[in-house]
Amino acid sequence: MTVVRDAAKAALKAQRIETPSWGYGNSGTRFKVFAQPGVPRTPWEKLDDASKVHEFTGVAPEVSLHIPWDRVDDYAALAAYAKERGLELGAINSNTFQDDDYRLGSVCHPDPKVRRKAVDHLLDCVDIMDATGSKDLKLWFADGTNYPGQDDIAARQDRLAESLAEVYARLGDDQRILLEYKLFEPAFYTTDVPDWGTAYAHCLKLGPKAQVVVDTGHHAPGTNIEFIVALLLREGRLGGFDFNSRFYA
């Protein structure tokens, strides 16, 4: 037991938690965001808050960015600003869910013009990774259908695979795609990346630089998350964790 305890303590001391930049913004519910005094207004101010969190905890030296919420003119300067505060810029998170064009999906959309727009955004995020020194492109897609017959389910998976392959080909040697999943959010009928198995299947097709992000809060009731983690570790495909709660599930 002493050996196990010591190993657990060593692992906890060595952990590095990456906080999301948007976590330093105004908070609320899915129905309203409540403005609060003193909340960061820019990516630079978010880094100021993140450096204080790392100062107090000692385990949060990285901050992930969200594009376009954290768009700046000079990403190299932002990375330097983070370094001055004892931080590193972590994953770059894309956004293909807010524009009206994405009502029927983004990389899975039946219109090639919309897919082109989405993929171009993802490629732009890789450019930002190059500028910031980030190693990870974090992908979550709100793509899905809301009723039977709205679209061809298999064809949507083909479009997803094709889009991911183009982005994967753009990655540098030391960069990764981290593919996230959510069981039932936000589509009512089918979600295009609903579970770890779907994410894992696409990552296998892409290659070793594509890995799965395990979301602790977005599984069917009774799902054994430890098993998922063990299998992905065994296959070398565990890219990280999203520590979401089950409150909404």
Rank of each mutant, 00 (worst) to 15 (best):
A60P: 14
V39C: 00
C108W: 00
D152M: 01
D127E: 04
D70Q: 11
R159P: 03
A131R: 10
A82V: 07
L206M: 10
A79Q: 09
V53F: 05
G222Y: 03
G38D: 04
N244E: 02
R159N: 09
Q175L: 11
F31N: 13
E62L: 06
V229H: 14
M129E: 04
A8W: 10
M129L: 07
F184Q: 07
R85F: 03
K182S: 15
D99W: 02
G23D: 06
I92Y: 11
V126S: 11
E55C: 03
G23L: 08
A161M: 05
P110L: 15
V214W: 14
Y24H: 13
E235R: 00
D124S: 09
N244R: 01
Y200V: 06
D99A: 04
D74N: 13
V114Q: 05
D192G: 00
A10E: 05
V3R: 02
F241T: 12
L233P: 07
A199V: 07
A50Q: 00
T29F: 07
G149Q: 05
D101E: 02
K46F: 09
D152W: 02
D158N: 01
H121V: 10
P110H: 13
D99S: 04
R170A: 11
G236K: 09
W44E: 08
S51W: 00
H121W: 05
A131Q: 10
A79H: 13
S51E: 00
R176E: 07
Y24F: 14
G133V: 08
D215C: 11
G240M: 01
K182Y: 02
S163Q: 03
Y24N: 10
G86T: 08
L87M: 08
P112W: 04
E84K: 15
Q15R: 15
V33R: 15
E235L: 02
G149S: 03
F34S: 14
Q150E: 02
K13Q: 11
F188K: 15
Y181C: 10
A8F: 12
A60Y: 07
G172K: 12
H202N: 15
R71G: 01
P20D: 02
A199D: 10
G90A: 06
D127I: 02
G28A: 03
F56V: 12
Y81S: 09
T216C: 13
C203H: 12
G172V: 13
Y102E: 04
G105T: 04
R85D: 02
A131S: 09
K46P: 03
D74G: 12
Y81R: 13
W140T: 06
E84S: 13
D6K: 07
A77Q: 03
A165N: 04
K182N: 15
S94Q: 04
A79V: 14
A142W: 03
S51D: 01
D100N: 11
M129G: 07
H54G: 02
S106I: 09
G90N: 06
A14M: 07
A77P: 01
G207I: 12
K113L: 12
Y189L: 05
G172A: 12
F243E: 04
K13W: 07
R246A: 14
R103H: 11
A60S: 14
L232R: 10
